[in-house]
Nucleic acid binder design. Structure first.
Lengths: 224, 224
DNA sequence: GTTTGTATAAGTGGATACAAAAATCCAGTG
DNA sequence: CACTGGATTTTTGTATCCACTTATACAAAC
């Protein structure tokens, strides 16, 4: 009952930060389900603080799109409709497309080696049967868009990855592993190697938009 | 000293909302300058409430990118460096490009008429010498990207417009009026009329990226 | 048996109080 | 005269309290 330094929460300089990280990780792995109401008092007790920092964490989560906040009726876990999932992929496709284009000058033997490494890791996690494929897949994409060197762009894309992670996990549970994933990502690397920025951008856009329909097909029927 | 229904704040169902709108409009028109420190207590007194809702408004403004929040050292008005302004335009270009592509099916005689109207209004506000050109210009763009019918996309683009508004105003002050603005936007309308979505997307992207260098050239030297 | 009203409980928004941290000021020192 | 260290002041972060709104449960009326 007494609060301990506790499991998942690493260094957080403020209570608000702690609450934010706690809730974020709980939402990412789907411990709270869309439509669930989050009651500040309960969560505050859970992590040993008062309601106030929790309230503030809610606001940050709301602007990440992870929860919905309505005056006088509290905080509910945001559920994406199929349309909203698809829209998120549309946005991701152009943002990550831009990132690829901007990252092109950074591509060299070293970065390609790293990409191969990340691709292998992704592949292995898929075989191991654990639910680690989704994070590994996100790391692969993250490595690329981080090479763009554009802080705001990176933050926006990361935020989108956060929002869709639970749905990616559900999807993964259905299909065990995206069958053509390795091929898809090898094509992507190929495009990066071509040195043609416009082409690589286009390939990334199609890669992302291509997976969207698969995902929405299996999307949880729960929504709002 | 007692708080009245007061000037600029329209209907706000909560105090936090009121604080948010108040600060947002103050920031948009540049009443607070980049680097200024915002002290919750002062602002709270100014609009007749306690620090608490103001703090929460800060968080929303922070995720809009209008202010920066650091633990234990408060809230400062965000100043964009030239690089950050440019980056914002890069992001805008792909997002508004996407919006145009998605909006293509909505284009018809009626919408073109509306666009001409908005263009005229923009032109007139430029001649009148007031600082109304920037909002009118934003309305022109907003009309287009709203036709995309994608709520999340619309929200993201709006957020970007918010961030760059003060810089657009500064820019406008320097050049009185973007000389080729009318021509630029007429080209845009032309591309929309062509019916070729990919082409229209490209024109929008170039239109936005084209204005970025002009803007950064005149950007306030103040930054962080 | 459904509707409507009302009492009660639960929860939210906001103000105030208090503690911890940072910034500021100022005297003393090298 | 710049610099260091510490006391003072300011500001931030969190907890607690209260008022008001919304949800729930139960009862009376149609």
């Amino acid at each position: 009952m007494a609060m301990s330094p506790s499991s998942a929460d690493l260094k957080a300089s403020t209570a608000e930060e702690e609450a934010y990280l706690h809730l974020q990780s709980a939402l990412r792995c789907g411990r709270y389900k869309p439509g669930d109401r989050l009651i500040p008092e309960e969560i505050a007790n859970e992590i040993g603080m008062s309601r106030m920092p929790v309230r503030e964490a809610f606001r940050r989560l709301a602007s990440d799109g992870l929860v919905t906040l309505r005056p006088n009726r509290g905080c509910v876990v945001a559920g994406l409709t199929v349309d909203e999932i698809y829209e998120t992929f549309e946005i991701r496709s152009v943002l990550e497309g831009l990132a690829v284009r901007l990252a092109m000058p950074e591509m060299n033997a070293e970065t390609f080696e790293e990409l191969d490494l990340l691709l292998d890791r992704m592949e292995r996690s898929g075989q191991s049967g654990s639910s680690e494929w989704v994070p590994r897949h996100q790391e692969f994409h993250a490595y690329i868009y981080r090479l763009s060197g554009r802080p705001k762009l990176i933050r926006q894309i990361s935020a989108l990855h956060l929002v869709i992670e639970p749905y990616m996990r559900i999807w993964f549970d259905y299909v065990t592993k995206p069958l053509s994933a390795r091929q898809e990502h090898e094509n992507l690397i190929e495009a990066l190697k071509s040195g043609d920025a416009a082409h690589a951008e286009e390939v990334m856009r199609e890669h992302i938009l291509g997976t969207a329909p698969l995902l929405t097909e299996y999307a949880s029927p729960a929504r709002r």
